[in-house]
């Protein structure tokens, strides 16, 4: 498994852990209020820590274990995998933006809007990283 593939696994697990906690703990009953939006903002701090700490620790650990691989530039296959993953993530991103527009037109605001956008971002990232992991396993 290459250095970049390992880092993708760490990012995938970090995303699931960080934002899994966020979406399971969020007080959905208050989502459509200003306080719901502020709760979102405050919950982003621990979420970011849950996501970033394993990312930094994992990157450092794998870079120390395989310094040569860590310093290699992306080759053409990895660039292709990168592009394919980003392309796959475009679709949930578009769907999420449309969902947000629909929600705002129908009077949902603040917390819902923030949460729909956040869910869109997280879903897109999961699709991107997940697709890249799939292509790494498949060969390209």
């Amino acid at each position: 498994m290459s250095f970049r593939e390992k880092i993708h696994w760490v990012a995938f697990v970090g995303l699931v852990a960080g934002f899994g906690w966020y979406f399971l703990s969020y007080p959905w009953a208050t989502a459509n209020t200003r306080s719901g939006m502020l709760t979102s903002v405050w919950m982003l701090f621990p979420t970011t820590i849950i996501f970033l700490v394993p990312m930094i620790a994992g990157s450092a650990y794998f870079a120390i274990r395989t310094p040569k691989e860590a310093n290699l530039k992306e080759d053409e296959r990895e660039k292709l995998i990168h592009l394919k993953g980003t392309h796959a993530a475009y679709y949930p991103l578009v769907l999420g933006v449309w969902a947000n527009i629909f929600a705002m037109i129908n009077g949902l605001m603040y917390g819902w809007s923030v949460n729909i956008l956040m869910a869109t971002l997280v879903l897109s990232e999961l699709v991107r990283v997940g697709a890249q992991l799939y292509y790494y396993r498949r060969g390209y």
Binding site: M1, S2, E5, E69, L72, D75, E76, R77, E78, Y136, R138, G139, Y140
Partner: peptide, 22 residues
């Protein structure tokens, strides 16, 4: 060649089509 070991493995196994340059 300027690619990773995993890319060489993928080319060898016929899983990845390299660029003309590679």
């Amino acid at each position: 060649v300027g690619v990773t070991r995993q890319t060489i493995a993928a080319i060898e196994q016929g899983k990845y089509s390299p660029s003309l340059e590679v």
